[in-house]
């Protein structure tokens, strides 16, 4: 297990390095920050001074060498737009994002596992058809449209929930619902498919022959075996959630990592883009390792081999 984890960690870090290199050069293709931050009639001397101040006057290659040298010490430089360290700008937004992702994923599983299980318990019944219709609906409707309609209905017309920002509990409702939308549909279908298979497996029939209740058969004997595909998809979706939930930042001005990254791109704030991608990358790597650990906990055959 330790060897497996170290291999996993090494390959992930190589991938992260590759991503960082690409992001470094791609970000600089968006144009010069000087033309954004200085007035239109700025003199060449002003531009030069701005570039020197922000380390943009050196050749691209030496900028890259500096970036790598600093990044290895976890120094991602200064944010031009916010006038504070880029790492601070990113990390201060991270708790919002992780909390949103955790709540949304928790509620998603709480909803999708029973729905998928009940659908699988009576295949082709009215209940099954209803649940399948619901899950296909949530998985298919565009989330930005859903978010906007929710704002229209609940915020503008009914005035029940705030349109944007982050305040009390009510400000969480629409962002969480928007982030959950697709995962609920997709994971319900995954649970249903996996449970259909395990409910018909020999060990569940054998357990039934021992006189156990359907609850025990479904939620203990079948569900534990259906866990692997569910964990895989849930992990993938959770990765999407910590990735920023850009829709939520765009529609609800949610102060998470998504908003920080999008703002940084608009502001040609290279340091923040790089720090943001790095932090999200680390979060995804940690999430994948967590998924591997949950795998091992769920299935002893993985633990042993």
């Amino acid at each position: 297990m330790l060897k497996f984890l170290s291999v996993r960690l090494t390959t992930s870090l190589i991938a992260l390095t590759g991503v960082m290199v690409i992001v470094f050069f791609l970000a600089r293709l968006t144009g010069s920050p000087a033309s954004l931050y200085l007035p239109v009639d700025a003199t060449d001397a002003m531009v030069e001074a701005f570039n020197r101040q922000n380390g943009l006057d050196k050749p691209l290659v030496s900028q890259f060498v500096d970036f790598v040298a600093n990044a290895l010490r976890l120094d991602f430089g200064q944010s031009i737009a916010q006038q504070r360290p880029a790492a601070t700008a990113v990390l201060s937004a991270m708790p919002q994002t992780i909390l949103l992702a955790a709540i949304a994923m928790g509620l998603t599983l709480l909803l999708a596992i029973p729905l998928g299980t009940f659908a699988a318990l009576s295949p082709n019944s009215t209940l099954d058809r209803g649940i399948t219709l619901f899950s296909l609906f949530t998985a298919s409707i565009p989330d930005f449209w859903f978010a906007l309609v929710c704002v229209l209905v609940f915020s503008v017309s009914l005035g029940l929930l705030p349109t944007s920002g982050q305040g009390g509990l009510s400000s969480w409702v629409l962002p969480v619902a928007t982030v959950m939308l697709h995962p609920v549909g997709v994971i319900t279908q995954v649970v249903r498919g996996a449970m259909l298979e395990t409910l018909n497996a020999g060990y569940v029939q054998n357990a039934r022959a021992r006189g156990y209740s359907w609850r025990r058969l479904a939620f203990r004997h079948a569900l534990r075996n259906a866990a692997l595909p569910i964990i895989t998809v849930a992990g993938d979706r959770a990765g999407g959630m910590v990735n920023g939930a850009v829709i939520v930042s765009a529609v609800f001005a949610w102060p998470g990592i998504g908003k920080v990254l999008v703002d940084a791109v608009y502001n040609r704030d290279f340091a923040v883009i790089q720090a943001g991608v790095f932090v999200v990358g680390i979060a995804v790597i940690l999430l994948n390792i967590l998924v591997d650990l949950v795998y091992a906990a769920a299935d002893p055959r993985i633990r042993v081999s």
């Binding site: 020999g202 029939q205 054998n206 022959a209 075996n225 299935d299 002893p300």
Partner: peptide, 20 residues
């Protein structure tokens, strides 16, 4: 009835036991 009344042994023992 299942258990104290009638019990059953199946053909494929690997399939009949829960792997997890």
């Amino acid at each position: 009835v299942r258990g104290p009344g009638i019990a059953m042994v199946f053909q494929d023992s690997l399939d009949a036991l829960n792997p997890v």
